[in-house]
Design a protein around this nucleic acid. Structure first.
Length: 557
RNA sequence: GCGCCUAUGGUGAAAUGGAUAUCACAACGGUCUUCGGAACCGUUAUUCUGGGUUCGAAUCCUGGUAGGCGCACCA
């Protein structure tokens, strides 16, 4: 990578000057007129070397110029002591050829080669609705999975679902009392809501539900048929949503499985003094580790999510001997995972450093703008549906094959992009109208830019214009952005932050649109071939970038 | 109350301790007899507050203010 070439040059220069530097930072200047790369080493080292930063920068520049790599056109010292690097036309030409040659693999790296990583995300609960929080977890988890996969890791996607627990008991209890149909997703949601409400307000109902919960865990609730039907209904429903979202899980774990492993672990922990009895319950006092107390067995003798979650890493490892296991959930569970990981590390010290939690913000909808058809939760599918209707409306005047499928891809793009355009720990205020505006900073804008390029390529094909990457005419802003892609991916994977990709492809689309609006590509001149190659390289980069975000790139829209 | 996180134009966001804080939406004004107008160009407007560290702070430290989340039998 070019970054390493330049860093090496600087290090060689420093060595020649007899200066020791721990780290050489290289950044992209905010202003393109400041070159393609910029380094602040001179300013960082000035004080230690007791030299004026600009003078020191000048000396470094001189040294580098003695052995200037081919990729670099020139170097300059600017401002308070920055060393700016301008890449050569030769570099950009080779880059263009490389992108077209690599195609789908352009941007890949091997930072995680040889690593086995499992990513767990989405985690909806059967018998409960799939809500927008699950949509967020899925969007971020899928993007993270693809980014680490693109970085060479052996990647497995996992889902973890609550097939037992109080929520199941609430729904089953309600189905037993009222006429809810376990074959209907809507009814299941309503049944859960009803059971939940009674649990909170009706003491007698609460005790019945707790009693039922004990039996659900043992699989002898007496409602086995209803349970099986309800579970199947939920899981099938979730599968349809994953299909729409573009996720294919390698593993699906269930809480009932976690329980089998977690329960003996709790007993072992009790003997080891990790857990204590308190008010009839079995608890872990996290205070001595700066955490808080959590219950691993209730006073009613039922288990909690904590118990089952304790077994999960073991369950995962039995299937896939991972180096790292990533769990993506909402930020509200952050301190919860601190406790669970602490308890787990006490019981299983050899998992040290292998468990990672990525918390994401919550999705907030503008008040009154989204209908909440099922009580007070907005379901994932209703949000997708609403966006799809908007997309279809937008596409009314277009003649596109498979319009319905494309509209769905556009709808999903609009949602995912909104989630992935900001750093993942922050809450997101999702504005459906803005995401649907399809202008500027949106998923559909990028899909559009991509589709437009494909259409140009097709036209070139029918006109018999061929691509030529080896004779770059001029260096444009598009070219200077293109080479950054692998670097952007590397940064995204280092921080598990997909939004770097989002920001980058938006910048690239925008630069392309600007260039495109001022240049005719198929202009009948010999340069048309080069311009065509540049456009193609942008399409390749956008497509790979969108793929990393889990967003489809329709050929026509 | 305790702990964690956040605060950037009217709105939503970006910025690896670096140069004149970037982008989009909205508003206003323009462009072009479309290689697909879901386009392009321009104008207005921003780092919550007090102190500190640094050659240099939106970024680090510290006091405040405002908001989010968590803190015992839910997940």
């Amino acid at each position: 990578m070019i970054r390493h070439t330049i860093t090496n040059s600087i290090q060689e220069a420093l060595k020649a000057l007899d200066i020791v530097a721990e780290e050489v930072a290289l950044e992209y200047p905010a202003d393109v007129s400041h070159g393609d790369f910029s380094s602040n080493v001179a300013m960082v080292l000035a004080q230690k070397e007791k030299q004026n930063p600009r003078e020191l920068a000048g000396k470094i520049q001189e040294e580098i110029e003695k052995n200037l790599p081919l990729e670099i056109e020139r170097i300059e010292v600017a401002g308070p002591g920055f060393i700016n690097f301008y890449l050569s036309q030769d570099f950009f030409t080779k880059q263009l050829e490389e992108i077209l040659k690599k195609g789908d693999t352009w941007g890949r790296n091997e930072l995680l080669k040889g690593q086995k990583i499992m990513v767990e995300y989405t985690q909806p609960n059967p018998f409960k609705p799939f809500h927008i929080g699950h949509l967020m977890s899925n969007t971020i988890g899928e993007a993270v999975s693809r980014i680490i996969e693109f970085s060479g890791a052996d990647t497995k996607r996992a889902n973890y679902q609550g097939d037992i627990g109080l929520h199941v008991a609430k729904a089953l209890w309600a189905i037993g009392k009222e006429s809810f149909d376990a074959r209907s997703v809507n009814d299941l949601g309503a049944a859960y809501a009803y059971g939940h409400e009674k649990y909170e307000t009706d003491e007698k109902a609460k005790l019945e539900i707790i009693e039922l919960n004990k039996h659900v865990a043992l699989g002898d609730s007496g409602l086995k048929d209803t349970y099986d039907i309800g579970l199947a209904t939920s899981l099938n429903h979730f599968e349809e949503i994953y299909e729409t979202l573009g996720t294919k899980f390698d593993y699906s774990f269930f809480e009932s499985e976690g329980l089998t492993i977690g329960l003996p672990m709790v007993e072992r922990g009790l003997k080891a003094g990790i857990f204590e009895e308190s008010e009839g319950a079995l608890v872990f006092h996290g205070e001595k580790y700066g955490l808080h107390t959590r219950v691993f067995k209730t006073q009613y003798g039922t288990t909690t999510y904590e118990t089952r979650d304790l077994g999960l890493p073991i369950l995962k490892q039995n299937e896939f001997n991972f180096d790292t296991s990533i769990t993506v959930t909402a930020v509200e569970q952050e301190t919860y995972f601190d406790v669970i990981f602490k308890v787990f590390s006490l019981l299983e010290p050899n998992f040290k450093g292998k468990l990672v939690h990525i918390p994401h913000g919550m999705m907030q909808l503008p008040e009154g703008k989204m209908s909440s058809r099922k009580g007070n939760v907005v379901t994932g599918e209703s949000l997708i549906e609403e966006m799809k209707i908007g997309a279809l409306k937008k596409m009314e005047s277009f003649e596109v094959e498979h319009k319905d499928a494309v509209a769905e891809e556009v709808a999903v793009a609009a949602i995912k992009y909104s989630v992935l355009k900001q750093s993942s720990g922050k809450n997101i205020s999702f504005n459906p109208e803005e995401a649907l505006s399809f202008e500027g900073d949106s998923g559909p804008y990028i899909q559009y830019a991509h589709a437009r390029i494909l259409s140009i390529l097709e036209k070139a094909n029918t006109e018999g214009v061929t691509e030529k990457a080896n004779a770059l005419d001029v260096v444009t802003n598009v070219d200077t952005l293109l080479h950054r892609f692998p670097d952007v991916v590397a940064r995204a994977v280092a921080e598990y932050e997909p939004h770097y990709i989002t920001t980058y492809i938006t910048e690239l689309s925008s630069a392309f649109s600007t260039w495109y609006a001022h240049t005719k590509i198929l202009d009948g001149t010999p340069e048309a071939s080069v311009k065509l190659a540049r456009a193609h390289a942008v399409a390749v980069t956008l497509k790979n970038g969108l793929w990393l975000l889990g967003i489809k790139a329709p050929e026509r829209m």
